[in-house]
Simulated scan of single mutants.
Amino acid sequence: VSELSYSILGDHSEPEVVMGESSWVWQRSNVSIGGTTYAHGVTVNSNSSVTIQLNRQCTRYEAMVGIDDLTMGIGSARFSVFNGDGTRLWQSPVMNGHDPAMPVSVGISGQESIRLVVEPGHPGNFTALADWANSRISCR
């Protein structure tokens, strides 16, 4: 996901981040969660939604999620993966800064799009940077 094109610039033949339906996304390398560094990922605010148009037959979404170590242990968030119809396919418990990353593995066969959502772990807590590390989509 850290290497996906955006819908405005993409050719619609592979998964793409949908610009008009997505929050701020920082595509980056060397993402760190709970003291462990991951080769790549995307970082978002703790109140975000990123829509990915799949544009082909895809079978699985996988990632490691958690609070980015750049926040120095401050903040908390809950991660969710939704299908294009708004049905929640997966949800994490509330994750806090310094917690180890949690694996995500969600079947997405038959879906046209997925939405990666991060919500503040506690009311008024919007300070955390949240990571979808080693985030990848398996397609045919």
Rank of each mutant, 00 (worst) to 15 (best):
F126R: 02
N96V: 02
S92V: 00
G86P: 15
G20A: 10
Q111T: 08
N83P: 15
N96Q: 01
A39G: 08
V104H: 01
D131S: 05
M102Q: 03
S76K: 03
A133F: 06
E14I: 10
V18S: 11
M64Q: 09
S46Y: 07
G97I: 01
F82T: 14
I137T: 06
T71H: 00
S105Q: 03
V118L: 05
V42H: 08
R56A: 09
I52H: 08
Y6R: 14
P100K: 00
G73P: 07
R88H: 11
A77R: 03
S135G: 08
R88P: 11
A63M: 03
V25Y: 07
A77K: 03
N96G: 00
R78S: 15
E3G: 09
E112R: 05
M95S: 00
A63V: 05
T43L: 13
T71I: 00
N96H: 06
S13L: 13
R88K: 15
F79I: 13
R60A: 10
V1L: 14
F126E: 04
S138H: 12
V104D: 01
L129Q: 02
S113N: 11
S49C: 13
T51R: 12
A128H: 02
C58M: 14
L116H: 06
W132I: 06
D85Y: 13
V81S: 12
Q91W: 07
T43V: 15
G35K: 03
P120T: 10
Q27G: 03
V81L: 13
V25R: 06
I33P: 05
N55F: 02
S2V: 10
V117Y: 08
P100H: 00
E3S: 11
G121M: 00
Y6N: 11
Q57G: 13
R140P: 13
V25G: 01
W132M: 04
E3N: 13
S135T: 03
V42W: 11
G107C: 06
C139I: 07
W24E: 13
S48N: 10
G75Y: 01
S109D: 07
S109Q: 13
H12V: 04
A101M: 03
S105T: 01
L9F: 10
W26Y: 15
P15E: 09
D68C: 08
I33G: 05
R56H: 11
E16Y: 07
D99R: 00
S105W: 01
G35Y: 05
S49P: 14
R28G: 12
S2F: 14
T43Q: 14
M64D: 10
N96A: 04
S135A: 09
T127G: 02
S138Y: 12
G66M: 04
V106T: 07
P123R: 02
V65Q: 01
